[in-house]
Simulated scan of single mutants.
Amino acid sequence: MSGGVRATGVGSHPGDDQRWFDEAVRVVLGELGEEPGLPYLPEVPGRGATATMTGRGLAVVDGLDADLQPAGWRLTGSSGSPGLDHRRAFSLLAQDLDTLEEQAHGLTGAFKLQVAGPWTLAATVERPRGDKLVADHGARRELAQALAEGVGAHVADVRRRLPSIERLVVQVDEPALAAVVTGSVPTASGFGRHRTVDLPEASQGLEWVLAAIADAGAEPWVHACAPGTPWGLVRGAGARGLSVDVEVLAAADHDVLAAALEAGESVALGLVPGAGGALPSDAHLTERVLRWLDMLGLDPAELPGLVVAPACGLAGADATYARAALALVRTSAANVRAG
């Protein structure tokens, strides 16, 4: 039996107010709160800029202030005087953790958090004088280090709130990493592209954050669903879990995932669309997992780190689809376990 196979979600859920977040927590705990589930802190970005991946990431960053401009989030320095919207982002994250603490009281086993990665933040947040942080070597370095500092405190806060959790996973979301290392991040005008960040620097920025997670006693994962994500670099930077969209993987990526699984690390296979259309049957999804493993010559009974998941977040789905998608990955993981 492949007893380690689990099911989880990427993180985001549909909705546009706090009631939707409360319901998302209930859905996640209800569908994934017991084996083979890996429950997680949901995100409901439809509530506004303070609840998006970027806003939530800035709520974790330590020592850098930000405010919200018409073009999006912008750093304002390190004066200790965050703008109104940045304070709202802090407050919303704390409120969400209060809700989680109340609903997940007594939860044991494993749990997952998500935080925007340093390169995705650098590609979406502006520097004080304008344009994205990714354009400034010093600014992107400072941001990565501030995120590393803040994520350690975030892990400690969640451990305090969920004291019975035995295994805590922190998933670093890097949807923009591929664009950063290929020079595809658009400039403010939209007519140009920012220069490529070289691979050693990209690795180092990610390494600081992943090491901080590990030092805080949590397990660092990285999620990305963009084609061209350099998974070998991600694993080399210290990720002990790789969360991927199987549909966009290149041939070489499969070798990286196989090596991770054989080393006892985690691989979350994104096989369920984040929104739209009819969901596949659990039998079909189970067969896809088994075929993928067979292609790589891997035995599911020997892979404690295998995880079944949606390919991306569920924010674009409706509530019925989101719940059904989590039920589907849970059932499929149980099928693979029973294999």
Results as ranks from 00 to 15, higher is better:
residue 161 R to K: 06
residue 164 S to I: 00
residue 126 E to T: 03
residue 156 A to S: 13
residue 167 R to N: 02
residue 161 R to G: 07
residue 186 P to C: 14
residue 133 L to C: 12
residue 137 H to D: 14
residue 170 V to E: 03
residue 141 R to M: 09
residue 129 R to I: 04
residue 139 A to N: 02
residue 193 R to Q: 14
residue 196 T to G: 04
residue 146 A to C: 04
residue 186 P to T: 10
residue 150 G to L: 00
residue 169 V to H: 10
residue 192 G to W: 04
residue 168 L to S: 06
residue 194 H to S: 10
residue 133 L to E: 07
residue 178 A to Q: 07
residue 189 S to W: 13
residue 209 V to R: 03
residue 173 D to G: 03
residue 158 V to T: 04
residue 117 G to D: 05
residue 182 T to S: 13
residue 123 A to I: 05
residue 171 Q to E: 08
residue 143 L to A: 09
residue 171 Q to H: 03
residue 183 G to F: 06
residue 204 Q to E: 15
residue 166 E to V: 02
residue 138 G to S: 13
residue 129 R to L: 13
residue 129 R to W: 10
residue 125 V to N: 11
residue 193 R to A: 14
residue 154 H to L: 02
residue 211 A to C: 05
residue 163 P to N: 11
residue 171 Q to I: 01
residue 170 V to S: 05
residue 169 V to W: 07
residue 209 V to E: 04
residue 187 T to H: 09
residue 170 V to L: 09
residue 208 W to S: 07
residue 182 T to D: 08
residue 134 V to D: 09
residue 162 L to K: 09
residue 198 D to N: 15
residue 145 Q to E: 10
residue 152 G to N: 00
residue 167 R to S: 11
residue 129 R to P: 00
residue 203 S to N: 02
residue 207 E to K: 13
residue 122 A to V: 12
residue 150 G to F: 00
residue 160 R to M: 04
residue 151 V to W: 03
residue 190 G to F: 12
residue 142 E to K: 10
residue 155 V to I: 06
residue 189 S to V: 07
residue 161 R to W: 05
residue 118 P to V: 07
residue 168 L to E: 05
residue 196 T to K: 15
residue 135 A to H: 09
residue 157 D to Y: 01
residue 159 R to F: 05
residue 210 L to N: 11
residue 184 S to A: 15
